[in-house]
Amino acid sequence: MNINPKIDKKDSLTISEYIKNFARKHSLFVLAYGTGCGAIEIPPTMTSRYDAERFGIRGAATPRQADVLLITGYLATKTLKRVIRVYEQMQDPKYVIGFGSCTINGGMYWDSYNTINSLDKYIPVDVFINGCMPRPEAVISGFVKLQEYIQEGKADGWLKYQNNIEEYRANQKRVIKNWRMPDYNW
């Protein structure tokens, strides 16, 4: 079995891809997994004040059902291990939104010994939302940006992960020294 398929990206979208992307764009199941303090901004985003469900964004309870992994805030190296496992359990196509300054450059934990600095070295990130914390408006604007990318076929972080798995693995193993993780088979 070829466990590491190289999937090429096409330049133009066919009609069936257009329809698929339309459906994917309007139906984003977000995994309810809060990694950092940013998770506190998710309840207002989902509930009646900002109501993300009108964009088709709703929570999914397990990684198997989810489309979007929302990394809410700082990632300790311990959490990174879980995030990688969760990300690998999600079904393609899957998207990652880096949420808050901590995922971009470490934020206020930039010199911490147990907090990673750039999330996109470990898993591919489609959209970053900056701010500490981003307000629910910013979160929704990030989701809308992701929807645009999905429609244009640009949200291809999952393809990037498949094609550059060795590089990502090397980076991950640099942080997670004792690597006792199941293999990622597609």
């Binding site: 459906a23 139906s27 469900e53």
Partner: peptide
């Protein structure tokens, strides 16, 4: 959604969800 004072998804939202789920590329 309306009872919770939200706008809520469009009523054809479930069709989009099912279409998206069928267009997933791995299992």
């Amino acid at each position: 959604a309306r009872i919770q004072n939200r706008v809520g998804p469009p009523i054809w939202q479930n069709f989009l969800d099912v279409l998206k789920l069928y267009s997933k590329e791995s299992a």
